[in-house]
Amino acid sequence: MKKFSWIKLVVIVIITAPIWMWLAWCFTPKRKMVVATVDKTVLTADGQEHISLIWMLKHKRFTKTSTKLYQISDYFGFFPKDDQKYLVKGLERFSSSQLEQLSNDADMAFFTDTYGIYRQEWFAGKSQTERSGILYGGMSEQDLILLKNLKHQKKLIMMEFNDINSPTAPNVREEFEREFGVQWTGWIGRYFDSLDTTVNVELPKWLVRNYIRQRGAWPFKKSGIAFVSEKDQVVVLENETHLDTEVPFMVSNTQGQEEYGLPERIKYPYWFDILRYNPKINQVLSNHEIYANTKGQKELRAAGIPSRFPAVIIHKGEDYQFSYFAGDFSDNPIGMFSTYFKWIEYIAPWFVHDEAVSERNDFFWEVYSPLTGKILEDYYKEKVLTKPRIR
């Protein structure tokens, strides 16, 4: 009789693991949770700005009906078509009664991006380095009515970077800020791995142009962080010249780490907005931190930009539930195929080796997945299962 081989067993387990993971996902019960997703910045049919949300809903078997899983096309906003054609299917077409009905039917809303689509990027080669005339974008009065209705009905609201920034009308923004206890300072920012205009083709031309108009020249060649105000004021902190650490970090407090599974520190080299919040209403789980040297701190102080500001703001109470991710959290290079495998979140991070996407991939698995997953799961168990729907 041959001896039992543990090596062969391990090999068999590894080879058959995807099958068992897929079967486990298939036999996980579906759970109906109606999510009203709004995305007004959809340049291509892959829905990059809300793909991470759809991944989470599908992976966790949340459904829009009793049987149908969520798809990329399940959102309100801008829908690109072939030959530079498009459809706009936002909440702006809804009457007051239709908005009321939607707020009754929906269990929650997730606004992933209201920045919108500009003519330059849509009609002139889809270049995102220029801005010229908006086609569609900004939080609308109808969007705000839905959000207020959901809050009144004690439902979950999730928001993200650029939902209340330009091109949202000031009166809509101000009403949202009063209603939900967050305030945009007027500044956004992003890290760039190169500020050299001859090297980095993704460096926005309008950003460089506005800086030259204000300062006379663009002298930067290294990596750095660019800040832009709603009035097109530009502040640039260059690595070594203004920064001790070139990349911003997202730093989570004890609650963020222990309750939501967030890492204590992780690089955050993407777009972010700089917000204030009312501590009597909301609490912060994580902050963005900029590590500027003396020269950089002087630049920040002169512009009124803090070096530490909220990254994740939440309100969790019996009255309503609310979260605001002050960054481009949902825009990740995640493929939908992986949704079909249970426990994939524990395995997938080890198999991505493409340096071009590795940081964004790490962010999805280490931040977006545990944070969004926890919020969705808690809300479903506490509210959706226990409270009758309003009809």
Rank of each mutant, 00 (worst) to 15 (best):
N282M: 10
F329M: 09
G261V: 07
Q183G: 08
L376H: 01
I314S: 05
W122A: 07
E230P: 00
L69P: 03
T241G: 00
Q297M: 15
E160C: 09
E289I: 06
L102C: 01
I7T: 13
T28S: 10
C26M: 12
R93G: 03
T197K: 15
W25C: 07
V247Q: 01
I117E: 00
L147G: 12
V182S: 08
L146G: 12
R131S: 07
R276L: 12
S229M: 07
T16R: 06
L285I: 03
Y380F: 11
A106K: 02
K154H: 15
S229W: 04
W218I: 10
P349L: 02
F180G: 07
E100Y: 02
R215P: 00
F79I: 12
Y70E: 05
R119S: 14
S97G: 02
F249V: 13
T198L: 08
F363L: 02
Y75I: 01
F351Y: 13
R190G: 14
K58E: 03
K89L: 09
L262W: 03
L371H: 07
K2G: 00
E179I: 00
F337W: 14
T112S: 15
K267D: 11
K151I: 02
F79C: 04
D107L: 05
L262Q: 08
K298M: 11
L195A: 09
